[in-house]
Write a protein that binds this DNA or RNA. Structure first.
Lengths: 149, 149
DNA sequence: CTAAATGCAAACCATTTGCAACGGA
DNA sequence: TCCGTTGCAAATGGTTTGCATTTAG
């Protein structure tokens, strides 16, 4: 928490931006989230604690957090961009159910290593990656059977 | 080409939809594309051959093509949804340059196998996946050095 | 004939931007 | 004080929808 604040404020100073209450509040709320939150999710959470913060500021701050590596954004098929932690959080990938939208997280050392190897082969300097396996989760497979019979 | 048309027309019949000239034209154009085309890209290409086809029909047809597995869509950070072949085209993943936007395609048997293994572990029935490694491509690394010195 | 398809224009909707008031440094 | 920041409202832009007309089956 303190480390992340440090990183954020340092980034602001470096860019000549200002440290404000709204920005700090949004960072705090974002750090408390787990998984994948949309700007709207963050906005609601921030709103609950400080109703004066606007939608726009949430968007602008999430952009800043992304710039300094504290957040990572990913576009989803439903049209929303979602944000997850980008610092001090173990990286993981996702199984995405195309029926119910649920997310399962996983991590594979083998895949991570192989990716680095591939990047090296193409003289590509990787910063991050996104691996999503789409399909039907176990729950939905069971339900589908029930409906079919 | 003929196989794909077969699949498409079969899908239309099954769903009680109609086979139209526009739909066939859009499929033909789509099949000729390589890589990742936005709806707008397809629209321009179709337009060049048949100026009467509308934007809306392209969107609606790409949706149909996706439904029957001939196309696969992916949302990109620039806001555009892009479509690539989903049938009879060897699957591949991407290195995405965050500086110039260029795409490098790659394929790894190891990663593919590992993904299936992971899906199995979670009793997840995979349909497809998307792996993107973001970073700086070799070209942009060289340019950056040139600017810095 | 009849229900689906088409293309236009308008609607949608997540996100971004213009702007006047505000507030760090 | 000086510029960046804020929140509102309006704009943006890719995509979708309503509707009157056309067309496949």
């Amino acid at each position: 928490m303190e480390q992340e604040k440090e990183i954020f404020f340092e980034h602001l100073k470096k860019e000549g931006f200002k440290k404000t209450g709204q920005r700090e509040k949004i960072l705090e709320v974002f750090l408390r989230t787990e998984g994948h939150s949309s700007a709207e999710d963050i906005y609601s959470l921030v709103r609950a604690e400080d109703p004066t913060v606007g939608f726009t500021t949430v968007y602008r701050t999430l952009k800043l957090l992304t710039e300094c590596g504290l957040a990572r954004q990913e576009k989803f098929a439903d049209g929303y961009t979602r944000y997850e932690h980008g610092y001090n959080h173990q990286h993981h990938d996702h199984l995405v159910c195309i029926k119910c939208g649920s997310l399962i997280e996983f991590f594979s050392e083998v895949i991570e290593r192989k990716q680095d190897e591939i990047a090296r082969k193409f003289k590509f300097q990787p910063t991050h990656h996104s691996l999503r396996i789409f399909g039907i989760c176990h729950q939905c497979q069971i339900q589908h059977q029930a409906v079919a019979s």
